[in-house]
Design a protein around this nucleic acid. Sequence first.
DNA 1: ATTATCTATAGATCTATAGATAATGC
DNA 2: ATTATCTATAGATCTATAGATAATGC
Lengths: 223, 223
Amino acid sequence: MPRRTGRPRTAGASPTGRGTREDILHAGARLFCTVGYGSTSTHALAEVAGVRQATLYHHFPGKHAVLLELLLGTVQPSLDAARALLAGDEPAPARLWALCAGDVRLLRAGEDNLGALYLLPELDDERFAPFHDRRAELEAAYRALVAACGVPADDVVRTAALVLGLVESVILQRRRAPGTLDDRTADVVADAALALVGLEPAHRAAHAGTGRRLAAPAPAAAD
Amino acid sequence: MPRRTGRPRTAGASPTGRGTREDILHAGARLFCTVGYGSTSTHALAEVAGVRQATLYHHFPGKHAVLLELLLGTVQPSLDAARALLAGDEPAPARLWALCAGDVRLLRAGEDNLGALYLLPELDDERFAPFHDRRAELEAAYRALVAACGVPADDVVRTAALVLGLVESVILQRRRAPGTLDDRTADVVADAALALVGLEPAHRAAHAGTGRRLAAPAPAAAD
DNA sequence: ATTATCTATAGATCTATAGATAATGC
DNA sequence: ATTATCTATAGATCTATAGATAATGC
């Protein structure tokens, strides 16, 4: 909701039509994913947002706060889904299927490849601790469901890492060959996850069916 | 081999003992992987290398050339192995197993997580085209072996992307939880790759055995 | 003489702040 | 009066070059 007061912009209207704060987040999403964090100047950020560089500081204390807000916005829907699935009483493989498929859908959704934010080396910084906390909880959910699928205790960490790796592979695939992703990708990845936890093909199909009902319908509209 | 001529350093001896050029590459490996490319200044690079900032330009035309050389050095051993395996006449699953296990070993080897260089958004730049060419060839090798494993033509691209995703998941896993990687990781990932291409557990074990012999012995020493 | 380093620095760029300006709201 | 933007800029930093220096080689 654009503010009605204040000096008008010289560069014209808000690109997103949702106000300057959103314009800046949108610009950050675009630039941090494609150019990088350290390689994106506050000037470039402002330019894409359609304002002057100094205007950023009216809305955010700095570049880092823009990135943090994007990161939290990315992990939150995933974490919400994970919590709901952890609390569910459906068979564990169906819930794991739904978690994987839901995350792949989120990674594929939106105009920008926001999952790529997670690949930035600059994330290893105190300032992004709130994001890392949520990520840790999400990873724990993957491990819990993998364990509940009957994977031996000694192999849970290892197997959960592989499952998460499969899901996250969508980030790099979207970057280098976006055309190879399609509506089937989420299902294929989730099916593969059930194969990794050792389920027989016959059982997989049934769990996938249940999982498909569990997975929230494709989010109506985000960006 | 350190040069014998030239003004001596003020900051003391070469950290790597292999000369300034190697010191700079070593510093780049450390910093680009942990801090990022855009966030690493030539000053920081020089400091870690143990020389003054201007000295970099005697050895490299700029930061980008340091990164390019690191990238090429990372992809080359992997590409060499892929070419050898593509030309082999052993069963395709055994060769795919060997390719995956070899790449995981390479990603786990060395003092720095050099695979993380591939995650840098800054790579999307003309200057790194030679690296992208080699990467493309490596990815084609994965697809060729996946196809040779009997995966239906329509699924080859999709499946190869998942296999590559499994292998690359080691990069992120090494970054966030290096302690969870061990000597078994390469085998586990390669086994999982065979599961993804649809092999039955009984067949997998045999191919893994052949693959293990194919995979070059762990590189004697790199770094 | 040759070489690899150094010091010094120009010029560009980047971050963050101070204060002016141009709108709306009361 | 309040607000969001703007212009202007200080101070820091960054890149890349010029030229001095301190070693070895001949």
